[in-house]
Simulated scan of single mutants.
Amino acid sequence: MTAAPSVATWATTPPLPRAISPEHAQLAIDGCDRRTSLGLRDRAVLLLLARLGLRAHEIIAFTLDDCDWDSGCLHVHGKGRHERLLPMPADVGEAITAYLSRGRPGSEDRHLFLRSLAPIRGFKPGSDAIGSIVRYPLRRAKVDAPHSGSHQFRHALAVRMLECGASLVEIGDVLGHRSPQTTSLYARVDISSLRSLAPPWPGDAR
């Protein structure tokens, strides 16, 4: 009895990252009303997601002391008390400055971003506050995003860095990955580069 060889299948757990397009991300950012305190806050948060690929809980954890204006850097508190220092892009710095000077409510709370409604304080850890900040601008901009969460901005940054030639190590450093295996997930997204490495199928007449 003959048997055909089995075809290799690739695990998709965790699944391939679903990234928002740069154009849609910019539409959401531009849709924030900079004449209002809410719009100033939301724009700063969206820029942090898009430019630095931060996790929601990292943005929630930011305090006023985490902005190092002298060096132009941000102190990011990641998973497992892992901290990293990231450069503050010019547009991110300008957005945070605008929020602090014209949008942030007066409060003794030292968190960088505060609720817009009473009680005026930082967002509760583990809440979906950043997810809500993402959903409303996307809805206003009528963007058909891959999903409604904040992680799509993080994935988009990783894919863009990969397309621009950044190594997986560099991407992992920016995103705060503790394990190279986590970052290697993004190698599957760069299909054009992977295709060039694939050997021809046996018997291919090319």
Rank of each mutant, 00 (worst) to 15 (best):
R81K: 14
Y99A: 00
G149D: 08
L114H: 05
G126C: 07
H151P: 05
D144S: 13
P137C: 06
V92F: 04
L112P: 00
H75Q: 13
L86Q: 07
D128S: 10
L85F: 10
K79E: 11
R154M: 10
V169Y: 14
Y99R: 03
G122T: 08
D173N: 13
G172Y: 03
L117H: 14
D173E: 15
K79S: 12
H147I: 11
G93Y: 03
L74V: 14
L168P: 07
S127E: 04
G103R: 01
I96W: 00
F153G: 03
A95I: 01
W69L: 15
H82E: 15
D144Q: 14
R81F: 03
A141M: 10
R139I: 00
H111I: 05
F113G: 02
F153Y: 13
G72D: 13
D144Y: 03
R121E: 15
P125G: 09
A141N: 11
R140E: 08
G172M: 02
E83A: 10
L157S: 08
L168Q: 10
D128E: 08
A90R: 13
H151C: 06
S107V: 02
G72I: 09
R102S: 13
A158H: 04
L100S: 04
G149T: 10
A145C: 12
G103K: 01
D70Y: 08
G176A: 02
V143W: 02
L112H: 01
H147W: 06
G78N: 05
G80Q: 07
R178W: 07
S107T: 10
A129K: 03
S167D: 12
S167L: 11
D91H: 06
H155L: 04
C164E: 14
Q152G: 01
P87H: 06
G149L: 04
D91G: 07
M161T: 09
I171C: 10
L162S: 06
K124S: 12
L112I: 04
Q152V: 05
R160L: 11
E83M: 09
I96K: 03
D173M: 15
G165Y: 10
R178I: 07
G80R: 09
Y99P: 00
R139N: 13
S132D: 14
P119F: 09
V92H: 05
V143R: 01
R154L: 06
R160E: 13
G131D: 09
L74W: 04
S101R: 15
R104A: 02
H155R: 11
S101E: 15
L86G: 05
P119K: 11
G78Q: 06
M161S: 05
L86C: 10
G106Y: 08
S148L: 10
H82Q: 15
C164S: 12
G176F: 01
E94G: 04
F123S: 00
P89Q: 07
L74P: 00
E94D: 15
H75T: 12
A95T: 04
M88D: 06
P137W: 00
S167G: 11
E170G: 13
G131P: 00
S116G: 14
G165A: 11
W69I: 11
C164L: 14
R121M: 11
H177W: 07
A90L: 12
R104W: 12
P105F: 06
D68Q: 09
V159G: 01
L112K: 03
L168K: 12
